[in-house]
């Protein structure tokens, strides 16, 4: 005989205490439930919400839970990734230099860019500092998973998601295609390291590489080789470097 059945008959029915009369009527529990409902109803009817909606304290007495959305909009939290914008320069053009970094990294492949090239005679300083600009910059917001990788990938700080505006719903899919006139908005941004600030002042020496303007062979410095014995290489027959190169 184990301890579990010590002192009891193993086959005797277990006596269960049934609900008493008070519990069987359900009246006190009913009143408790009604009290909770009434309390919430009165709180929602007469209460006011905390003035600071960032505080999500639901324990206060005067806190209405429901946000009456179209009339009342809670501010989005810091760092909320909203609708994209193309950041303008001071002169209103997009900062984008059409490098395709955002279009390349986009996992949804929702960014489409067509690049145009500045000619040698376009503009004064700009044509030699920036080579390319976007003639088309299209984002399909219905494809976009708002991951923010385009913002991280952009080397020129030209695309941001700091509008704190969500993408509105539409009746058709064409409405979600955002092009440059719809995307180019918001305050302009400049950085001291912007290439169009690097020009000017004194003339630069030829061997200094200019940003975004380095071409092969440009600025190469030819240093005379030191005197000494040299290995003569026979260039008449091609020599296989490795077996993988063809």
């Amino acid at each position: 005989m184990s301890d579990l059945t010590h002192g009891h008959d193993a086959h005797a029915p277990v006596k269960v205490e049934g609900p008493d009369f008070r519990e069987r009527t359900f009246v006190p529990e009913l009143l408790k439930g009604l009290a909770i409902t009434t309390r919430h109803f009165l709180k929602n009817l007469f209460g006011d919400r905390d003035a600071n909606p960032q505080v999500l304290d639901r324990t206060g007495d005067s806190l209405v839970t429901t946000v009456q959305y179209p009339e009342e909009k809670t501010p989005y939290p810091e760092g909320y990734r909203g609708l994209h914008r193309l950041v303008p320069r001071e002169d209103g053009k997009p900062r984008c230099v059409a490098c395709y970094m955002c279009a390349t990294i986009c996992p949804a492949q929702c960014i489409y860019i067509e690049a145009g090239e500045y000619g040698a005679e376009d503009g004064a300083a700009e044509s030699r500092v920036i080579e390319k600009y976007p003639t088309q910059f299209v984002i399909d917001e219905l494809r976009c998973i708002v991951c923010g990788l385009c913002v991280d990938a952009c080397p020129k700080d030209a695309i941001r998601m700091d509008t704190y505006v969500h993408t509105p719903s539409e009746y058709n899919r064409q409405g979600f295609v955002y092009d440059i006139p719809k995307l180019l908005k918001g305050p302009p941004v400049t950085h001291p390291s912007d290439p169009w600030y690097k020009r000017g002042a004194s003339a630069e020496p030829d061997h200094v590489h200019k940003e975004a303007h380095t071409r092969i062979g440009e600025g190469a410095v030819h240093v005379p080789l030191p005197p000494g014995p040299r290995i003569e290489v026979d260039h008449s027959n091609p020599v296989p470097v490795t077996k993988f190169l063809k």
Binding site: C144, C147, T167, Y171
Partner: peptide
């Protein structure tokens, strides 16, 4: 489809916008 709601996932505000549309 009558209304498209963008977002991944959409915020509740976007859903309510779509519902009002």
């Amino acid at each position: 489809v009558d209304v498209y709601i963008p977002g991944c996932p959409p915020r509740p505000e976007q859903v309510l916008d779509g519902l009002m549309l």
